[in-house]
Amino acid sequence: MTERNRYPGYDVLVKRHSPSWNEATRRVMDARLGVPREPRFLSRIEWDTLVAICDRIIPQPKNRPPVPLAAYIDQKLKADARNGFRNAALPPQRAAWQIGLAAFEVEAHQLHGKAFHHLTTAQQDDLLRRVESGRIDAPAWGDLDAALFFSEHIMGDIIAAYYAHPTSWNEIGFGGPASPRGYVRMRNNRRDPWEPVEAGPGEEARVGRENRRVR
């Protein structure tokens, strides 16, 4: 996959020892970056399905280490960390994920005779869209409202995990953690030296050099 890097050379982690990061932030980010890459709550089958789903919800470029999205979902389920509210039509999140992942497998086998993670990306996307719009027929879903499960958990949990990761901040040019040092220049088109520069087409090399000085 080739895609334009809008903030070439920018690495928010370089600021780790700058005044932009405090001790609490370093503690939290160390834990985030050190997440175990193996399932601790989900079964191996559920994990494989989840990894494949994550790859479609947030397809990641091959030229950098991927954000281990499935690991964050597994971690959230293991800790049973919740959001503080649950649509009454859904079971608690652990049950929702387990039923949902199993149902994906059943659907994949019914439609294509293969495990979900062995489907082509087009087949995976197609199945995801069916679930998203509630066009499902496998009894494996039981009482689970598939469309709701898709928006609350598949999208909600996976996307939140991705944009909580420094790699995604580099991608969108987010300044990242900011305490005690915040920002000085508030108006449009103004940049503090610890913020990344955006590269227009063809400017990648020059901007890359500038962004490597951001700290």
Binding site: P19, S179, P180, R181
Partner: peptide
């Protein structure tokens, strides 16, 4: 100011 002189890049200006 927040961060004191260690955060001089901000506090000298703000």
């Amino acid at each position: 100011d927040m961060g004191g002189w260690r955060n001089w890049q901000q506090n000298i200006l703000n």
